[in-house]
């Protein structure tokens, strides 16, 4: 029986689903209440809900998708880590580049006009 239990297919347990489900519901409600009740300032709330989301992400990976350190599943873990790196580069790279570009953009005619008027001169 031990061989079967280690083969990666039959280790699925009802308990792990239940724990994962209850914790996920709890974390979802937690971040929802934090946002709706405005317990903390905006910046703090964002930090806390992002951390909560990451915790829930790892909980669901462990309890629902059964990612663990077993040797046979190491390819699964390495694909996951590779994916996380790619996603990180894609999302944060885009945000980094685009926010910089926004700041370095040439002003539009309307913006130049408004600026000139605010300085007391006529428009273009």
């Amino acid at each position: 029986m031990n061989e079967i239990n280690n083969s990666g297919l039959f280790e699925i347990k009802f308990k792990s689903y239940l724990i994962g489900f209850i914790l996920s519901v709890f974390l979802t409600l937690f971040s929802y209440i934090l946002v709706v009740r405005k317990v903390f300032s905006a910046d703090k709330t964002i930090l806390i809900i992002v951390i909560t989301a990451l915790v829930q992400f790892s909980l669901q990976l462990i309890f629902f998708l059964h990612i663990n350190k077993k040797a046979k599943k190491s390819w699964q873990l390495s694909a996951l880590i590779f994916m996380i790196i790619v996603v990180f580069i894609l999302v944060f790279g885009s945000i980094w580049i685009m926010y910089n570009l926004n700041r370095r953009m040439m002003p539009t005619n309307a913006q130049v006009n408004n600026y000139l008027k605010s300085q007391g001169g006529g428009g273009i």
């Binding site: 979802t28 992002v50 992400f57």
Partner: peptide, 12 residues
């Protein structure tokens, strides 16, 4: 399960 994981991030 994967779709649920993606939804965590959409929700947040």
């Amino acid at each position: 399960h994967f779709l649920d994981v993606v939804w965590i991030f959409i929700f947040t």
